[in-house]
Design a protein around this nucleic acid. Structure first.
Lengths: 354, 354
DNA sequence: CAAATTCAGTAAATCGATTTATCACAGCCC
DNA sequence: GGGCTGTGATAAATCGATTTACTGAATTTG
């Protein structure tokens, strides 16, 4: 991709290197000591002996000189950074973006900022980033769909985390309910031969979700045919993976009338593979996705899917993390918080042909 | 937005088990002064007078005691935060997610971290966030699809920014080329009656892109019928907006055989609206999108679209910003950097029926 | 042998804010 | 006049690292 630079006509930032006012400068300007200024600015209880007149004077000057406390200095002294780290596999369109937006909402409201890092499933980065973040003095960590090693000394909340590690709170979906919603729906439509696409090995939900599916299938007396079970392979989050997995399923020539995909993104790829091989969705094959990402409603056909409350999971993760950060030293904390799925009925499922 | 709680003086810090080793502690442990330790750890040239044996000793102890320099202290002293701020409209969007991932790639490689904030088009937040970020000591700002007010004292790079503000480098697509790619393609397929959907007022690309369309239409002698020009309305980034805009276009009863949407997300909504009203895509109406987000290739029909190199724009933005941050204060800097679009042919366009 | 140089480090100031302990002074009481 | 109280502050230590100017001893040089 070519890129051209238009001529740099401009002079440097015309702004005089505005030496930002420090507390000391402000104090001198007022003929007071930094201590007094600090006490007043921070509305410290110790400032009760400072008369109202002086306090006003200080606030006025602070406003006029546009005094902004130096964040580093304050943090250094207080040993607080008001910053957390968020570890995601990648900043993709679907899953992570929604969770992030929930996280952001709550954190910013509470005056926290956050660093995002994406490891793209590279084990070295998964290992390294938590340490880098701790060096950056984050007060807590949110791991999204990422199995964190132990040995982190700060509070950790894992969204869709399942490993029971000391110090980690897991935010998890009720995967048995989820499987039940999807499979009961398909069963009610008369489907018996159901194909499944499992998630990638590294995805932290893969195993639990699959166990849910197995349990529910047994309960509903639906046979799981090994030859109708595919798996996503590869590290991207493109629909291509679902496409590939479905093409592979189709080579077995084993018939099926419904497909339960690991997520919406792979369901989208699956639908394309089905159509390319002459199968209509939902007339010939019903497809159920998972997550309910934004574009699920606008696929053609629109996607029937199990909604995870991703945004809400982000909010809960942020809330939980901040609570833990601000809790007393050895306070108890929840090991896991469960949220519930919801079945969203759209066009990609229909009654089974017999 | 709630501001942070004016420096909580008491600090809870959930987990105090490991008192991290400071440089001073390390120095005492070694029977040396902090100065020596600092010089050696930082491989300062001034450490050349320290014999190799001692240097080894220091490094060994640092490793064994797991010494991690305190980031705040170091930043305070050096007046460097190695942090930049990224302002986006929202995270849960194809566009921003791709740009972000490019930004991240480059920044982390260079040892920088970044804060993300999303303003969701709220004017107060657009105004406030740059200041909050500056208080957090970020060394530069990247504004994605966001018009930044002036008065920022640090380097700013705007992705898809068009306002010429002192201190801002704009990363822009060549919108005339983009319009040409799309419209020439449609013209070659025999389309004369083309409908357009413009972006929202607040989107910084809307105006420039529309000017490109007008220029190219004139050049190719294609008439732009006012009644066939729609506009996205609303602040979300859901396909719903494109759906609504298209339904509105269809009420005019003015015939058209092709539609050029403002972006892929709205094109997806548009296709649904067209299909719901009995028009087949691409047989009856060809649709061209813009951006080439990940799911564009997996729509049904897959989307012909003008690709913006979004990821690359993110990388360029990060590169440019870091160059500017590390340049001498009054150095020149580019006012604009242009990148080129590419037409991606897929299934949503076809020869016009006559 | 005195002066200069090298060696091996160190003391102390600094970055900017926070916080505890302290202080000077005025007025009041006995 | 001494003691006490209250007012209105402030000095100084601290957070943890960086950096400049310096020092005492050993060694080399003139």
């Amino acid at each position: 991709m070519a890129r051209s630079k238009t001529v740099a006509t401009s002079r440097p930032r015309g702004n005089d290197a505005a030496p930002s006012v420090s507390q000391k400068f402000l104090a001198e300007h007022l003929g007071l000591s930094p201590a007094t200024v600090s006490l007043v600015i921070n509305r410290s209880p110790a400032a009760k002996s400072i008369p109202h007149r002086t306090q006003e004077r200080i606030h006025k000057a602070a406003r006029e000189l546009n005094y902004r406390p130096n964040f580093m200095a304050r943090s250094l002294r207080a040993q607080r950074s008001f910053t957390v780290g968020v570890v995601v596999p990648e900043i993709s369109e679907g899953y992570a973006a929604l969770v992030l937006s929930g996280i952001e909402d709550h954190l910013l409201e509470e005056g926290y900022f956050y660093f995002v890092v994406s490891h793209r499933h590279r084990p070295d980065l998964i290992q390294e980033y938590p340490h880098l973040l701790q060096q950056r003095a984050v007060e807590g960590l949110i791991a999204v769909d990422t199995a964190c090693r132990k040995g982190v000394r700060i509070p950790v909340v894992a969204v869709s985390g399942h490993s029971k590690v000391e110090g980690v709170t897991n935010i998890v979906l009720d995967h048995v309910s989820a499987a039940k919603l999807a499979i009961e729906h398909l069963a009610e439509l008369g489907h018996r031969k159901i194909a499944f696409i499992k998630g990638q090995q590294f995805s932290s939900d893969t195993e639990v979700r699959w166990e849910g599916v197995q349990a529910v299938a047994k309960e509903l007396e639906i046979e799981i045919n090994e030859r109708l079970v595919g798996q996503l392979e590869g590290e991207s989050s493109s629909p291509q993976l679902g496409y590939d997995a479905t093409r592979k399923l189709l080579t077995t020539e084993e018939a099926f009338t419904a497909l339960f995909a690991f997520n919406d993104v792979s369901a989208i790829g699956a639908i394309r593979a089905l159509r390319e091989t002459g199968r209509r969705v939902p007339e010939d094959v019903s497809v159920v996705g998972f997550d309910d990402i934004q574009s699920a409603a606008f696929q053609n056909p629109s996607l029937t899917t199990v909604r995870q409350p991703l945004r809400q999971m982000g909010v809960i993760a942020a809330e939980t993390l901040l609570t833990r950060i601000n809790a007393p030293v050895r306070a108890r904390y929840p090991k896991a918080i469960t949220v519930n799925p919801e079945l969203i009925l759209r066009e990609s499922t229909a009654r089974a042909k017999h």
